[in-house]
């Protein structure tokens, strides 16, 4: 009961701090850019539903999924604990009789719904703007965006446990691993969360007529395997972060 009370307080406090942060406000910028793009592109006006769906899918696969889930996770996942490290307020949490796993779980519990809200909410908004192809795309791609955002949030939270400048680490990871390595041929792309997310999207999209990518360039995993891997990454990264966090001395917190 004691830990539950402490944990819920921490979730509430972190949630409130993240919601009213400048980071949340700035996430509206990429979201607005994507919204304007979809509005300008005029998907409802495309007469061939298959062309419209493929066109929208390409945007969601290669632009939206590459940017919004990592950016949302960066703003919330990396900042939930990283913000305390950056502001040097972590000391106030570490001196309380709250187990470290409760602190970590609370930080994740505060950041995760926000990141999901932004990336999945953004997807809903864009798909609604896109009209009929958007309805199909939303149902098909929502799980992928959901699992991707969850995995990114966990990874970036782990970065904030490991690195003082978690945001920079997250940025380096997002840009190099996801944007560069995630788009090169070969198995190296399997190091990127994005690969599994895209596999899940391809798996869902193919049923609706999405043209499968050239296997030489991108060979997607099955939906089941991709989902399992994303969940596995989330769990493994959270457990790893907890193992480090429970023993680590945060000398820099004061």
């Amino acid at each position: 009961m004691t830990y539950l009370r402490a944990g819920t307080t921490l979730v509430f406090t972190t949630f409130r701090r993240l919601v009213w942060s400048v980071g949340t406000l700035m996430l509206l910028f990429p979201l607005a850019a994507c919204t304007l793009f979809v509005a300008r592109r005029g998907y409802p006006q495309i007469s061939d539903p298959l062309v419209a769906f493929n066109s929208l899918s390409n945007f969601l696969l290669y632009i939206y999924a590459s940017f919004m889930p990592p950016l949302a996770a960066l703003a919330f996942g990396a900042q939930s604990l990283g913000g305390d490290r950056e502001d040097r307020t972590l000391v106030f949490l570490l001196i309380r009789p709250v187990p470290r796993w409760v602190i970590l779980a609370a930080k994740f519990a505060a950041a995760w719904p926000l990141a999901i809200c932004v990336s999945c909410g953004g997807l809903a908004l864009l798909c609604r703007l896109a009209g009929p192809p958007g309805s199909i795309a939303f149902a098909a791609y929502l799980p992928a965006i959901f699992y991707m955002t969850t995995a990114y949030t966990a990874v970036f939270l782990a970065f904030s446990v490991l690195f003082r400048h978690a945001v920079i680490a997250a940025l380096v990871y997002s840009l190099f691993m996801e944007v560069l390595l995630g788009n090169v041929p070969g198995i190296i792309k399997k190091l990127a969360v994005n690969y599994y997310g895209r596999s899940l999207m391809f798996d869902a999209g193919v049923d609706h007529g999405l043209v499968a990518p050239d296997p030489q360039w991108f060979e997607p995993l099955s939906g089941f395997a991709a989902r399992g891997t994303l969940l596995g990454i989330t769990l493994a990264v959270l457990v790893g972060a907890w193992l480090v966090f429970r023993l680590r001395e945060y000398e820099d917190s004061a």
């Binding site: 402490a6 307080t9 701090r17 307020t89 001196i95 309380r96 004061a254």
Partner: peptide, 28 residues
């Protein structure tokens, strides 16, 4: 513990801050 650092959750009021920190001890 009263740390030396002069950092807080700046957006909170003094009362909110003390209340939050006290609540972390698991009180009702």
């Amino acid at each position: 513990y009263c740390p030396e650092i002069n950092k807080f959750y700046e957006e909170m009021t003094g009362r909110e801050f003390v209340r939050t920190m006290t609540r972390l001890y698991g009180y009702s």
